[in-house]
Amino acid sequence: MSNTNTDFLLAIEDLTVSFDGFKAVDSFNLYIDKGELRVIIGPNGAGKTTVLDMICGKTKSTQGSIKFKNKELTKLREHKIVRAGVGRKFQTPSIYENLTVFENLEISYPWGRTVIGSLMFKRDQKVLDSIHKVAEQIYLIDDLDKQAEFLSHGQKQWLEIGMLLVQKPELILLDEPVAGMSVKEREATAALLNEIVRDRAVIIIEHDMDFVAQIAKKVTVLHMGKIIAEGTMDQVQNNEKVKEVYLGH
């Protein structure tokens, strides 16, 4: 485990996890700058989700270090990592179906996350303002009182992104945010992501190449737990190894 401090927002070094001897992620290195938007692509089962799982503490790594603002994350429990400033969106939209859009966003509000704090929580003007601001961003301002289960699939994805925004994280991890979206919704999402990234770093996992081309500046390609290419979309698309992996797939 390295003790060197870096200027990177996130520095992952030599990250490895093995499930019963199978290395789902193998000696993985990744450096993310403040305000960077990074896309991770790769065929099914490449280990993309597993990387995010390890950053946010859902899966414990076997070896390696994850430093966020020079703070080691591998030993922290999930809620501590969140409070340090990392937000995570899951592959399948994970929202509270029985609650309204407003309540969904409110639960993520980064205040009153203890037992006493949540009992005493007041819905004051500051809370309302920040929730309205996020609702506007995620195109759900008119649906605040709608029960979340009645949202369309795309809107659910936005809502989950909104729940992260309310937390005001410095790093957002998005697992396939446009899966199941219509073309129009994809465009709106691309606009949303480009806006989000102005204040924070974002790591996105995505399969859809057209969408990736719309948003990505830098792409990392993962295959069988290892990085096989890294660079701009053009560079990556012309990389022989990448072509092989995607064509052979």
């Binding site: 946010c56 969140v82 509270y96 996350r113 203890t114 949540s118 009992l119 729940m163």
Partner: peptide
């Protein structure tokens, strides 16, 4: 209260609540 909503949220989507920064043990 907010606690009530957190409780039913964690009943249905435990992970989501945990990754919103809550320590569910105490709740």
């Amino acid at each position: 209260s907010r606690l009530g909503r957190v409780l039913s949220a964690q009943r249905d989507k435990e992970e989501r609540v945990r990754f919103s920064g809550y320590d569910l043990t105490a709740f």
